[in-house]
Design a protein around this nucleic acid. Structure first.
Length: 851
DNA sequence: GACCTGCTGCGGGATG
C-alpha cells in the first residue's frame, strides 16, 4: 500500500510505467542487481532502508524466501518488502531482455498476492510512483474479479511486468493451458497479509497454487508478509514448506497498545447479561463528540445497525457524518463510508470486522470496541486503526455490554501488555479444495497424476495425503464417485490415453471457472430501491417473514418492503417509524482460549485495575454466594429454580467447546439417571437444566468429565449426521458438486440450494457411504465445528483440577447470564425481557439486604 | 430502565 513511503523519496521519474521509451531510462548500474549496486542506487536517492528491510532485501537478492512480520494496521509494512523487491527487479536487466524478443512474450516478473480486492487496487496504485521513479517502462496490472478489461487482458496475455492478484484469480490463471508459459519468467512472489489466509481454505488453495508455481519456477523467492501470530514458525512452514529454515524477519518493535474502559458510575446499575450495550449510548455519544473521527466496532452486523440507529437519534452533527460499514452492505455504500473517512466528511463509522482488514484509509482519532473483542488478534487489529503519534501507545476504548465484560477488558489489558496474540492453526487435508485444484489443472493443460501427487504432497496441507484419498479424489473428479457416475455433470475430467487428466467439455470449463474459490455464501436476498441502486443483502429467512409495506431497518435507513421477487427485495425509504432489524447467521466468534484463560485468572486474583474495581461488588457477591472461579479448581454450581435443577460449570473455554461439553454432560448424566436435560452456553461456561430433581456430587462430576470415550459419546450425543449435512453443502460447493449461480441470472434461493445439496448428501449416504466428501464433512464437523482436540484438552484439564462444588441459594453473577440464555429459547422476547429483569431485580434486592 | 448475538473474504469469457 504505502510503497511510496519507503521508496519514493527519490526524484520522480519522467515516465509513467509502460509509457516511456526504454532508452530514456536513467542509467542502471549493471545487469545483475547486487547489494552494493542497490545501496548506491538508494543512496543516490537519499533513501535509507531500515535494517530489517536491508536484511529482507539482501536475502531476496540471494534468492532466499522468507516471512516478514510487520505490525498490524501499519501501512508502511508493504513498503518493507515491495520497495527493495521492485528495485532489485528493475536493476536486473532481464525483463528488458525478455521484451527484446517477441512482442507478446510473457513479461510477468513479480507476482503479488493479496487476500482483498481493495488491497490489490491500492497496491497497484502505490506501485506506480516508485516504478516511474525507477525509470523502467513497466506495466503493473491487477488481476481480480473487478479488474478493468484492460488489466484482465494484460494479465491474461502475460503483458504486465507486475501482477497483483488474489488467491482465487491466481487459481484461475492456472486454469488456462498457457499458465506455465505465462509464469515462466516469474522472479519473485509476495504473499501479502498471509495471516489472513493461513488458517482457512483460501490459504489451502493458495498453498496448492504456490506448489504449482514452484513446479514452473523452482528458484523464484517467495516472501510472506504477516501480522504477528502465535504460531509464526508454523506460518512460515505453511507458506514455504520447501524452505524449512527460511528466515522470519521482524519489523522493528510492535506498537504498544493501551486500553480504556467506559466504566459505569458509582452506584449505577449495570446489566448482568446481554450483548448489545445500548445502555451505554449516552457515554459513547459523549466520547464520540470529543474526537474528530472515530470508529465504533461491534461484533455483529445487526448490532452495528442497531448502534447506528441509536447514535443517529442522539447525533448532534449533520446525519451524513455518521456512517455504517458491514459485510452485508453493498460495496458502493461501504466505499462511500471509507471515502468519507478519507476526506473528512464522515466523523464516525459504526463497523464490524469489514473494517478490520487492510483497506487503505487514514487512521482515525479513536477506536471504540463495543462488547467483547473475543480475541487478542482482533483487538490489536482494531486498535491499530487509531492514529498514534510516534512513540505513543495506541488506544482502544472499550464499551462493556454486561458486567463480566469488565473482567474481560482487564484480562485483555494484561494480554496486551505481554504482547500476546492467538495462533491460527492451518488446515490439513481439505480434500474438497484439492478436488477443485485438480480440476483447475486438468483444465489448465492437464496433469500427470503421479507428478501432481508429489507436487501436492509438497504442501503443508497435503503433506500427509494418503494414496487412497488421492485415488478417491481423482475418481471423484473423473466420475463423481460410484453413486454419481450416471450423471454427466459430475464427469468433469477425462483420463486421456496418455495417462493425463484433462477437461474437454467447454461447459465444464465454464462452470468450473465460475466456481473457483472456497468462499461459500448463498441464499441471500439482494436489497434494492425501486428506482434502482443496491443497498446490500439480507437473509432470506428474515425478509420472507416481512409483508409488503412492512418496515425494516437496514443500511442505516428505515425501509419499506415493496415486493420480493427473484431473490431481490425491492424497497423504498419509509416515511416514518422504526422497523425490525435484520439478523444474519454468521460465524460464532468464540472467546479465544488465550483470552478465556486470562479472564479466569483475573477473576481469581483480580489485578488492580479500574475495571476490576468497578466489578468488585459483583465479585464479592459471587464469593459470598458461591466462590470465585480460578485456574486451580473447577467451579461447579447447582441451583434449583422454577425452571428446574441447574448445573453450572465454568471452564472458560469459549462457546464452541462449551457447546460440545454441554451435550456430552447431558448425555452422560442422562445415562446414569433418567432425566430430561436442556442446556445453554456462553463463553465462560455452560448450564444444564434438568426437569426432575438432580444434584451432582463429586464422584458423579468426575464420571461426567472423564475424557474416556469422548469421541463415542460425542457422536451419540449430538446429531453428527445432521451437522455433517450442513457442513456438506459448503464442501460440495468447493468440490464443484453444486452448480454455481450464473452471472446475470437470478440467484438461487437457499431452499433450492439446500434441497440440491441435501439430496446429494442423501444419495451419497445411501449409495456411496464411503464417499470422500462425506468423510470430509464429518471430519470438518468434528475438527472445525466441535473442535474435538481442544474439547479433549479442556475435559482433561477439568478432570485434573479439584472440584469446587457449590450449592448457592440463588443464581450467582456468573450463573445469571447463563440462566438468562437458557430461558431465552423458551419464551418470546418480550416475556424473556420481563422475566430477566424481574430476576435481576430480585437478586439485587437480596444482595442489597445482605450487604 | 434495559439486560435483542453471531465476522470476513472471492469468483467468467467469447464476440463484436
Amino acid at each position: 500500500m504505502a510503497l511510496r513511503q519507503a521508496c519514493c523519496r527519490g526524484r520522480p521519474g519522467r515516465h509513467l510505467a509502460g509509457t516511456g521509451p526504454v532508452s530514456d531510462a536513467p542509467a542502471r548500474p549493471r545487469r545483475r542487481a547486487s547489494d552494493a549496486a542497490l545501496t548506491d542506487w538508494f543512496a543516490a536517492r537519499g533513501w535509507r532502508p531500515a535494517p530489517f528491510q536491508r536484511e529482507a532485501w539482501r536475502r531476496y537478492l540471494a534468492g532466499e524466501s522468507g516471512l516478514l512480520v510487520t505490525p498490524t494496521g501499519s501501512g508502511k509494512t508493504l513498503a518493507a518488502l515491495g520497495g527493495p523487491l521492485l528495485q532489485a527487479l528493475a536493476l536486473d536487466d532481464a525483463p528488458a531482455k525478455a521484451r527484446r524478443g517477441v512482442a507478446a512474450a510473457p513479461r510477468l516478473r513479480l507476482l503479488w498476492i493479496t487476500p482483498l480486492r481493495a488491497l490489490a487496487a491500492d497496491t497497484v496504485r502505490s506501485m506506480q510512483e516508485p516504478i516511474a521513479a525507477l525509470g523502467v517502462p513497466w506495466t503493473v496490472a491487477m488481476r481480480t474479479g473487478d479488474a478493468s478489461a484492460r488489466d484482465k487482458r494484460l494479465a491474461r496475455k502475460g503483458l504486465s511486468d507486475v501482477l497483483v492478484t488474489t488467491p482465487e484469480s491466481f487459481a484461475l490463471m492456472l486454469s488456462y493451458p498457457d499458465a506455465a508459459q505465462l509464469l515462466a519468467g516469474v522472479r519473485g512472489v509476495v504473499v501479502d497479509e498471509w495471516h489472513e489466509l493461513l488458517g482457512n481454505k483460501r490459504g489451502v488453495l493458495l498453498q496448492l497454487c504456490l506448489a504449482r508455481l514452484r513446479g514452473i519456477v523452482p528458484a523464484a523467492p517467495v516472501w510472506g508478509l504477516s501480522a504477528t501470530l502465535g504460531n509464526l514458525e508454523e506460518a512460515r512452514d505453511v507458506l514455504l514448506p520447501h524452505r524449512p529454515d527460511a528466515p522470519i524477519l521482524q519489523f522493528a518493535r510492535r506498537r504498544r497498545m493501551t486500553l480504556q474502559t467506559l466504566l459505569p458510575n458509582e452506584g449505577e446499575r449495570f446489566p448482568w447479561a446481554g450483548h448489545l450495550g445500548l445502555s451505554q449510548l449516552a457515554r459513547v455519544a459523549a466520547v464520540l463528540q470529543k474526537a474528530r473521527s472515530s470508529l465504533l466496532f461491534t461484533n455483529t452486523r445487526s448490532q452495528a445497525e442497531l448502534w447506528h440507529r441509536a447514535l443517529q437519534s442522539v447525533w448532534l452533527d449533520d446525519p451524513k457524518t455518521l456512517a455504517l460499514h458491514h459485510g452485508s452492505l453493498d460495496a458502493s455504500l461501504r466505499a462511500a463510508a471509507e471515502a468519507g473517512l478519507r476526506d473528512g466528511t464522515v466523523r464516525c463509522v459504526v463497523a464490524t470486522s469489514s473494517l478490520d482488514l487492510g483497506v487503505d484509509f487514514p487512521a482515525v482519532d479513536q477506536v471504540l470496541q463495543v462488547g467483547s473483542p473475543k480475541g487478542m488478534a482482533r483487538l490489536w487489529q482494531r486498535g491499530g486503526r487509531a492514529r498514534h503519534r510516534p512513540g505513543e501507545a495506541g488506544k482502544v476504548i472499550c464499551v462493556p455490554t454486561h458486567a463480566l465484560e469488565l473482567a474481560e477488558y482487564a484480562a485483555a489489558r494484561v494480554a496486551l501488555a505481554h504482547g500476546r496474540v492467538e495462533s491460527r492453526p492451518p488446515l490439513r487435508l481439505s480434500l474438497d479444495v484439492l478436488a477443485q485444484h485438480c480440476v483447475t489443472l486438468a483444465l489448465g493443460g492437464g496433469f500427470e497424476p503421479a507428478q501432481l501427487l508429489e507436487e501436492v504432497r509438497g504442501t503443508h496441507a497435503f503433506a500427509t495425503l494418503r494414496e487412497e484419498a488421492w485415488t478417491a479424489v481423482l475418481d471423484f473428479i473423473v466420475r463423481g464417485g460410484g453413486a454419481l457416475e450416471n450423471y454427466p455433470d459430475y464427469r468433469r475430467v477425462i483420463r486421456d490415453d496418455d495417462g493425463c487428466y484433462r477437461v474437454h467439455d467447454r461447459r465444464v470449463a465454464f462452470r468450473h471457472r465460475l466456481s473457483i474459490g472456497t468462499i461459500t455464501s448463498d441464499g441471500s436476498v439482494q436489497v434494492r430501491y425501486m428506482k434502482g441502486g443496491w443497498l446490500g443483502s439480507v437473509e432470506e429467512a428474515f425478509i420472507s417473514r416481512l409483508r409488503p409495506r412492512e418496515r425494516f431497518q437496514f443500511a442505516g435507513k428505515t425501509l419499506e418492503l415493496v415486493q420480493l421477487r427473484d431473490m431481490t427485495a425491492f424497497v423504498r425509504i419509509a416515511k416514518a417509524g422504526e422497523g425490525r432489524v435484520p439478523r444474519w447467521q454468521g460465524g460464532r466468534m468464540p472467546l479465544s482460549s488465550e483470552l478465556g484463560a486470562e479472564v479466569e485468572a483475573i477473576l481469581h486474583e483480580p489485578a488492580e485495575s479500574p475495571e476490576m474495581r468497578a466489578l468488585q461488588p459483583l465479585l464479592d457477591l459471587q464469593s459470598r454466594l458461591s466462590q470465585l472461579p480460578g485456574p486451580d479448581s473447577l467451579l461447579v454450581e447447582s441451583i434449583k429454580t422454577r425452571q428446574g435443577w441447574h448445573l453450572f460449570v465454568y471452564p472458560f473455554a469459549g462457546r464452541g467447546v462449551h457447546e460440545g461439553l454441554a451435550a456430552l454432560l447431558a448425555l452422560r448424566w442422562g445415562r446414569e439417571v433418567p432425566n430430561t436435560f436442556s442446556w445453554a452456553v456462553n463463553d465462560y461456561g455452560l448450564v444444564l437444566t434438568a426437569q426432575s430433581e438432580a444434584w451432582p456430587d463429586a464422584p458423579l462430576m468426575q464420571r461426567l468429565l472423564t475424557p474416556e470415550g469422548l469421541l463415542d459419546d460425542l457422536l451419540a450425543s449430538l446429531n453428527i449426521a445432521e451437522l455433517a449435512r450442513r457442513q456438506f453443502r459448503e464442501i460440495a460447493r468447493v468440490a464443484g458438486l453444486l452448480p454455481p449461480s450464473l452471472p446475470g441470472r437470478a440467484a438461487r434461493s437457499l431452499r433450492q440450494l439446500q434441497a440440491s445439496s441435501s439430496l446429494l448428501f442423501d444419495v451419497l449416504r445411501q449409495h456411496d457411504p464411503g464417499h470422500v466428501l462425506l468423510a470430509q464433512a464429518e471430519r470438518e464437523v468434528m475438527e472445525a465445528q466441535l473442535d474435538v482436540q481442544h474439547l479433549k484438552a479442556v475435559l482433561t484439564r477439568c478432570g485434573e483440577r479439584p472440584l469446587a462444588l457449590r450449592r448457592p441459594r440463588s443464581l450467582t453473577p456468573l450463573g445469571f447470564p447463563l440462566w438468562a440464555e437458557a430461558i431465552r429459547g423458551q419464551l418470546s422476547t418480550e416475556d424473556w425481557r420481563t422475566r430477566v429483569k424481574r430476576a435481576a431485580q430480585q437478586l439485587e434486592q437480596r444482595h442489597a439486604r445482605n450487604a
